[in-house]
């Protein structure tokens, strides 16, 4: 587990360093995510050709740590989210346009993205379908 956490931190560090040096518009952790995905794929393509050799960082520990972190991703937004209280006066002063624009624009964005994606992929096999649970999640 310490090695797995080290991998995540190192790739975040690498991403942040690249962002700083190259003045990229994308945040460090997001660059780190793409780099780690690329590194994992490269490692996997090599182990497939070299036979079943245990790779140095593509471990079950990394998978399980990633699952754990992603499972509580929502919690991690709470500290920043509470910052809404500092913006309450401005939000309430422009209440109606803000509420309507947030709802409308978010819904339109969701529907257009999903609809185009759905239309453009829909004749291909899509094995992973959401079981219809009647509006239930998790």
């Amino acid at each position: 587990m310490p090695e797995a956490f080290l991998i995540l931190i190192l790739f975040q560090l690498l991403g942040s360093a690249l962002q700083m040096v190259l003045h990229l518009p994308v945040p460090g952790p997001v660059i780190g995510m793409f780099l780690l995905a690329a590194a994992l794929l490269w490692k996997r393509s090599r182990t497939r050709t070299d036979g079943p050799k245990a790779s140095s960082f593509d471990t079950p520990a990394l998978s399980s740590l990633s699952r754990t972190l992603i499972a509580c991703l929502g919690l991690l937004f709470v500290p920043a989210g509470v910052g809404l209280v500092t913006q309450m006066p401005v939000l309430l002063a422009n209440g109606l346009p803000i509420a309507v624009a947030l709802f409308g624009s978010t819904l339109l964005g969701l529907m257009v993205t999903a609809f185009v994606m759905h239309r453009a992929t829909h004749d291909r096999p899509s094995p992973e379908r959401i079981p219809d649970t009647g509006g239930q999640v998790l």
């Binding site: 995540l8 931190i9 780190g32 780690l36 994992l40």
Partner: peptide, 20 residues
């Protein structure tokens, strides 16, 4: 609670695993 906020970084990097 900034330690919780800090974990957003590693958690974002962790999305690389399902992506790969």
């Amino acid at each position: 609670v900034k330690i919780i906020n800090f974990l957003l970084g590693p958690a974002t990097v962790a999305l690389a695993i399902p992506l790969a």
